[in-house]
Design a protein around this nucleic acid. Structure first.
Lengths: 114, 114
DNA sequence: GCGTCACTTTCCCATATGGGTATATGTTGC
DNA sequence: GCAACATATACCCATATGGGAAAGTGACGC
């Protein structure tokens, strides 16, 4: 097997930095595909592909406006990520304490080794 | 170019569900690699590879304990993800409203088209 | 209908993945 | 030193990626 498809998951879709950039950009409002490409300095076909991935996982919506296709953020899917990471909140608060315990254990092990 | 390395980012590391499972498991405390494999029903080499990725991005730490190697969660890196997703919080709250606007615009477009 | 603009899709490629199996490394106890 | 146990690495494979270039689709204005 290979790596999971980028479209299999919001997590996978968002793993690509370019796509995170796109989402951030779209916070300011709808934009046509070309504008996204320009503002992020990406090629037009490249942008189109990234937008497709985001569309497939439901993080953006698109609507036609004449020849243009306007892309808009649909951030609801990001909530799952926020909540998943939030489930670790107490642990990253404790991390310093834990790290200290860990370091002290290492030091202790060294003493024993000598 | 291919997809970004799984070790290039916390986002990429966490895109793999198996690795998220490992992190969740380690919330209950340190575990030797074999225990992780057993509890998640993964092969030993597979687990070892996933743990390596998590180690390289700093989401787990390991220490030797005799023949065993105990892995512990270091959740600090997940904070970045939590905060990044949190930056969209107001948007997923608004999403229903936006979706409505969007749908109405679609309906409107249809009317015009007829 | 036709040219043009705005995109999307198709191809091709280099790359790295995750999974399995087999093998190597490291540590302990005798 | 050696057997046994705990992990890590090396190999192999199928797969999908992101990027670039080129070709295809759709909508508009004349």
């Amino acid at each position: 097997m290979a790596r999971a498809a980028t479209t299999s998951d919001v997590f996978n879709a968002v793993a690509e930095e370019r796509r995170r950039d796109i989402l951030e950009l779209l916070r300011d409002g709808e934009l046509p595909a070309t504008a996204v490409a320009e503002r992020l300095g990406m090629t037009q076909p490249g942008t189109s592909k990234h937008l497709k991935v985001l569309r497939e996982v439901g993080l953006v919506r698109d609507r036609r406006a004449g020849k243009q296709r306007l892309y808009a953020l649909d951030a609801r899917g990001l909530r799952a990520i926020h909540e998943w990471a939030g489930g670790f909140e107490q642990y990253w608060s404790e991390s310093f304490d834990r790290l200290e315990t860990y370091v002290q254990r290492l030091l202790h092990d060294d003493e024993e080794a000598q």
